[in-house]
Structure formats: C-alpha cells, structure tokens
C-alpha cells in the first residue's frame, strides 16, 4: 500500500496545494461571502460550494490563493516556511547574497527552491527582511516566459505596500531580480567533507519531502480545532525582533483590534466561530468574560459577520497594551462607552 502511495505521489506532481476545508470561512459560516481565493485565481480553478475544491488540471499552482486566504485554508504541500527562512539565514554565512527561487525550471540559479513564489505574502516578505541580516535576492528571471509571470507584479505591489505602511527597509533587503545580469548568484564552495555532508542532507531532505507528501489527501481537521495561520505566526515571531518604531508601525498596519458595543449579551458564539483562536472565554471574578488576543487574529472578520447582535467591530490597527496577551474586551478595547 505504501509503495503504491509513493508511486502515486511521485507521478502526481500537480497536487501541490493542501486544502483544509475546516478553515474556509464559507464552510464555517454559510452566510459568509468571502471570495478572496476565487477573486485572485486567474484560471478560475477554485470552486466553493459543498466543499472547497481546486481543479487540478486547470490550476497553474501560482500559490496566490495560499497567500490571500485570511484563515489559512490552503497550504503549499511539502514546504515549510519556517525551515525555508532558517535555511536562508544559515546560507548567509557561506554566500554573500542568498538567492531564493522557484522550482519551475532547472536552469534557474537559486540556493533555495520552493513552489511558485506567489505564496510570499506581505507577512513572509517582512519576516524574510527581518530574519536575514543581509540582503536576499529573489530570482524571477524565469518568470517572463512562465504562465505564472503575473506574480512578479503581485510581489512588487506587496513590497510597495509594506514600504508604504511601515518604514521597514524591504527594498534594500530584498531584491526582486528579473534581469539575469543583476543576479549575484554564487555557488556554495564546499570542501570534500562539506560536499558529502551536502549530499547526505539532500537525500534526507528528499526522503522527508516524499514522506510528507504521503500524508492523507483529506487535510480537513476538526472544525473546532483552532490554529493561527502560518502568515500570522511568522509575523508574530518577526514582531518580537523589531525595534520600537517599526513595532508600532507593524502593529498599526497588520494587526487587528476587536471591539464590542452594548449589544453584546455574552453569548460567546463568536468564540466557536473564530477559526484561529483569537477569542477566548476567561473566567473572571464577575463571571465568564470575552477576551481577545490580537496575535491570534488574522482579521478574517468572521465573528463580525456572524454576531447575531451586530455587536462586533474588527478594525485594522492594534490599540491595546500587549498583542500577545488575551486582554479583556470590556476594559481595554471597548467602543461606545
């Protein structure tokens, strides 16, 4: 059985996006009108009705859906953003400028190969620019004649948006390289020991990727299992490293504030609706109380749409003390009183 699965996995390379239906806002709440992924999909490959489905024969795997879904319904299979950043960080010791690129073509020179770079959200780009001390080049030289070439504009827009909202030096840290001449790719020089070590690592990596791919096709978790999105988690980790002025800028631009008005009757239905676990009931002396953690909120607004009393308002820009803490909504973030 395992053998069959391995063969299936190797032959079926088109299956690059994992879907967790339980995260989809429209699966969680039938009145939700979220259509971010459908709007961004150039090939109309995504269907949402009785379930979330990507038509694999149409999908170009540009990974834009992965980067735009507010609740992390999609994920790039066999790729881990955390270890990708860690490997790039380690690379900066051995080469002057690490190069990140996609695995669409073999002749694209990169140190780290990933799926199509459309998955790089603003949060990813901020994380890359902060975690890597030096410069990073993103190799887009092959994009001109790729059907996913439109992601170059998307990445540029995302970089501009970051520069607009914050004073982070993303353009200095990260170069989008479209011209081969600008590329500063340098092979990693290896001694004999290093060479064999690299081969060993490569084999392990391939094996790991292979086995990661064998995980069951149905990625749907329990609807009540809360999990913060990878993007939000990356930004949370980045946030702690930022100097004070950037910290407030990022909090203003990327984090959310949760407010309720007098209409709230403490029914706590929003707690169950939230896909990421940003809302929690905390036992206080005066009884149970709604608390909010901004670092666990991806701003999908599902609670806002779901609240039967229309008492919830989600707004951009965190206003509390500590975004990593569950704060009482009544005391710190309440509006209209």
């Amino acid at each position: 059985m395992l053998q069959g699965k391995i063969i299936d996995t190797i032959s079926n390379t088109a299956d690059a996006i994992a879907i967790d239906q339980s995260r989809c806002l429209r699966m969680r709440f039938n009145k939700s009108t979220c259509s971010e992924c459908i709007k961004h999909c150039r090939f109309n490959a995504i269907r949402i009705d009785e379930g979330v489905d990507i038509k694999r024969n149409i999908c170009s795997e540009c990974m834009l859906c992965v980067s735009v879904c507010p609740s992390g319904c999609f994920d790039v299979k066999a790729m881990d953003s955390y270890s990708m950043i860690a490997r790039l960080k380690r690379l900066s010791n051995s080469v002057p400028v690490p190069v990140l690129g996609c695995n669409a073509r073999a002749d694209i020179k990169t140190h780290e190969k990933t799926a199509c770079l459309g998955f790089l959200s603003e949060d990813h780009i901020i994380a890359l620019s902060v975690f890597l001390e030096g410069r990073l080049q993103i190799n887009l030289t092959g994009c001109a004649d790729c059907r996913n070439g439109f992601i170059v504009d998307k990445l540029k827009k995302r970089m501009e948006s970051i520069a607009e909202k914050t004073s982070l030096d993303v353009f200095e840290k990260i170069n989008l390289v479209e011209d081969r001449l600008e590329l500063c790719y340098q092979d990693i020089s290896l001694d004999r020991r290093g060479f064999f070590k690299a081969i060993k690592n490569l084999t392990f990596l391939q094996a790991a990727n292979l086995f990661e791919n064998i995980t069951p096709d149905d990625n749907t978790r329990s609807y009540s299992a809360k999990k913060v999105t990878v993007r939000r988690d990356l930004l949370n980790r980045t946030l702690r490293l930022l100097p004070e002025w950037n910290y407030t800028q990022v909090l203003d631009a990327y984090y959310y504030n949760f407010r309720i008005d007098q209409g709230c009757n403490n029914c706590f239905a929003c707690v169950g609706m939230c896909p990421t676990g940003g809302l929690k009931i905390s036992a206080k002396e005066a009884g149970p109380e709604l608390t909010f953690n901004s670092s666990l909120c991806s701003g999908c607004g599902l609670c806002e749409g779901f609240c039967m009393n229309n008492a919830i308002l989600i707004e951009r820009g965190f206003r509390g003390h500590n975004p990593f803490e569950f704060c009482s909504v009544k005391n710190r973030l309440l509006c209209n009183t």
């Binding site: 339980s22 969680r28 329990s222 609807y223 239905a269 169950g272």
Partner: peptide, 28 residues
C-alpha cells in the same frame, strides 16, 4: 447550523444526528 457540510444533519433514516468533528460550538 452555519457549517458546511452541516454538523447537525439528517440521516436518511430520519434521525437528526450531530457530527462532533464539524461542530464549532456556536449554539445556533
């Protein structure tokens, strides 16, 4: 029930059955 597929659903045999995996606890 706001969830798709419904957590609270009818089986063909007429019983109203609650699926625990899909329930998000909204109490609708």
């Amino acid at each position: 029930c706001p969830v798709t597929p419904k957590a609270m659903h009818k089986h063909e045999n007429g019983m109203t059955i609650h699926n625990m995996e899909r329930c998000i606890g909204c109490r609708q």
